[in-house]
Design a protein around this nucleic acid. Structure first.
Lengths: 181, 181
DNA sequence: ACTGTAGCGGAGGGCCCCCTCCGTTTTATA
DNA sequence: TATAAAACGGAGGGGGCCCTCCGCTACAGT
């Protein structure tokens, strides 16, 4: 979280390379088979021994976390940035962004359900959006961040069915329309 | 689907008993560990050999189907029954019913995603509800049954978190409010 | 170039799962 | 009660996965 390159004694060149390869491989493998895919498959895909994987990432969760940290950071930033068209529009825009993230990297969802820290980060983003919108009187006041999270999860669930993306965007419209107080 | 007790040559008493036990055990085990739980665990729980399980249910899907057939039938019937307060109210009521089903038997969801036939049955129910509501002009016409299914999946997803049920009911209200044309 | 050491790989033990096969037990019927 | 047929159960072959451990490799600093 602070300066990352001065935190540990610095990695040897081959170690750094392998670490990067593992993350890249995990992105692919998890993207195809979900976040419960075999770690040995990840190591194979990275062209690296299983021992190397375990040296770099203590647990499956650590690996999942490394893969999605960047994406999650971006989502959080987008939520904080807001929208010029007001808080409810910001929610809509953010949900659209979320859909695109899911469409691209299929596993954000399982990352969310497997790595509690990721979940918290996204929850924080959602809270920001919702608080602003409620404060502005644009959204009914009985909603809680978890509600939106659940809606999100719904968007993400079954994201591999054909036509999912269009369906998700329609759902968002319905949902945002229903948000009015 | 037709008279079931005359379909096959009739089961021997012990066979019928074990079949029942297996379904009961599957209900418990799947309820606890999800529909991917080990079939051997189901057999153990039923106090029955693994061979017996496989003789009665050709595949995991067949077992899942047997477990949830009745619940799914009821959901389908409820959708066809409708509501005296109009088609949109019927959707709302049906979603509430769905929530209760999920709250009680935790695995309906995974049943849906694992057994295509269950999915189709529920899809049919949703279509009935939606068609009526659109025809009556109570719901925007661009919605498709899959959209509602996705919303459903969302309701079901993460159904084990604390406070899930209240959150789901709030979401339904938001959603139904947004359904207006 | 030399050498200490960080880092590598993958064999191997332990565990669980799937599914088949067949000797044994239970049931239904004559 | 005797017997054919149905049903049972669980051992066992095959496979995958998790994770540890340690002899070997290749990098970095002198």
């Amino acid at each position: 979280m602070s300066n990352p390159s001065s935190e540990a004694p610095r990695l040897r060149a081959d170690a750094a390379r392998n670490r990067e390869r593992l993350i890249e491989a995990a992105k692919e493998v998890f993207g195809e088979a979900g976040a419960t895919a075999s770690l040995e498959a990840v190591a194979r895909q990275a062209g690296v021994g299983i021992g190397t994987l375990y040296r770099h990432f203590e647990s499956r969760e650590a690996l999942v976390g490394a893969v999605y940290q960047r994406e999650i950071d971006r989502l959080v930033e987008a939520a904080e940035r807001g929208s010029p068209d007001g808080p409810r529009a910001a929610i809509r825009a953010w949900l659209h962004l979320f859909v695109d993230y899911i469409a691209a990297k299929k596993v954000l969802v399982s990352a969310m359900s497997q790595a509690p820290s990721s979940l918290e980060a996204i929850m924080g983003a959602v809270k920001v959006l919702l608080d602003r919108a409620i404060e502005a009187g644009e959204v009914r006041a009985d909603l809680r961040p978890e509600d939106l999270m659940h809606a999100l999860a719904g968007l993400a669930y079954a994201h591999d069915r054909a036509g999912w993306r269009e369906s998700a965007l329609r759902l968002i419209d319905v949902f945002v329309a229903g948000l009015a107080p």
